[in-house]
Design a protein around this nucleic acid. Structure first.
Length: 314
DNA sequence: TTGGAATGGACAA
DNA sequence: TGTCCCTTCCAAT
């Protein structure tokens, strides 16, 4: 799935494209029909993102049926590994684009959906759903279709709070607390490569940011949390905050500093990432071959020279 | 035509 | 630890 930066971009996109509008909510696929009925005709009034969870807040009352009230109905969406949102709309919509599509090809960007021309306002009609669309949100000028999500449900404000309470600090959020990350990761007997992927320790980090931030920090993925000095954990948090904020701004994960970027036509990924999906290729910093191993069912990459292996414990 | 793999995670044993 | 779920799409048959 897209990592945390994409979810924050989605929260911004929904606020810009649909904020304040009463939306027609449906489930073309049918598997979310009950949830869609709870939201249909309600105004989207808030959006939020925490880690990889997207929250869309709808006013409790339908338009014209009494006050909105303080209570919101939140649509909680977790894209999982293959979920995606696809947007399209008229010429006043910010162009048809998909955010968070499954990235079959590594390095693929958020891309415009081909073959859809922007229509003038009033002449636009929503396209037929493509694929198994779990939820369709239809506004005045555009539509957003959700497919493949691992989680999609309507929750109460209290339930939203409960979900967030289980999540670790998010480096992208204003309330993201680096010291909380240090507390949750420091002293732990688990590998730092596992801790970074544990959403209760830090939320929003995915498989690319994991390998890349550890390389930038010169930390081996198997180094135990308790063996990482607190100052280096703080630095790791700070670097992730910078990298992920950049990801929110650009929609791309780019972790290679300019001084290390290669202009190699045979290896276009070389300009973006130090080690991710670069097994056997030279490290951009030292030239040693990039290594790969499995860590809890996911691939993790590192440079065997820049990131020294921890001493074995028995 | 089939089958992995893809930037996750919940749950059972 | 393993299993399962959700969808897409390209490489290998």
């Amino acid at each position: 799935m897209p990592e945390g930066h994409s979810i924050h971009r989605l929260a911004h996109a929904f606020a810009e494209l649909f904020g304040g509008q009463a939306l027609a909510v449906s489930s073309p696929q049918g598997r979310f029909a009950d949830g869609a009925a709870l939201l249909d005709g309600h105004r989207l009034v808030r959006t939020d993102a925490h880690g990889k969870h997207l929250f869309l807040g709808f006013a409790a009352g339908r338009v014209g049926e009494g006050p909105d009230g303080a209570d919101l109905r939140w649509l909680r969406v977790h894209l999982g590994l293959y979920g995606s949102w696809t947007f399209s709309g008229d010429s006043t919509f910010s162009g048809p684009h998909a955010i968070g599509a499954p990235r079959r090809r590594v390095g693929e960007e958020e891309q415009a959906v081909a073959g859809i021309d922007a229509a003038a306002p009033g002449e636009w009609t929503p396209p037929a759903p493509r694929g198994a669309v779990r939820v369709r949100l239809l506004g005045t000028h555009g539509v957003a279709d959700l497919t493949g999500a691992a989680a999609c449900e309507v929750v109460t404000p209290a339930e939203k709070v409960a979900v967030q309470g289980r999540l670790g600090p998010d480096p992208i959020r204003a309330d993201g607390d680096g010291e909380e990350f240090v507390r949750r990761a420091g002293g732990r007997r688990r590998a730092i490569g596992e801790l970074l992927m544990d959403q209760e320790v830090i939320s929003g980090v995915g498989n690319i940011y994991r390998s890349e931030s550890l390389h930038r920090a010169r930390l081996h993925p198997r180094r135990l949390g308790r063996d990482v000095p607190l100052a280096r954990l703080r630095a790791l948090w700070g670097d992730l905050a910078t990298l992920m904020a950049d990801g929110v701004a650009t929609g791309r994960i780019v972790t290679v500093d300019a001084e290390h970027a290669l202009d190699d036509a045979a290896d276009p990924e070389a300009a973006r990432w130090y080690v991710y999906h670069r097994t056997g290729r030279p490290c951009l910093v030292c030239g040693a071959r990039v290594s790969e191993t499995d860590m809890q069912g996911r691939r993790v990459f590192w440079c065997s020279r820049c990131q020294r292996a921890p001493r074995r414990r028995t």
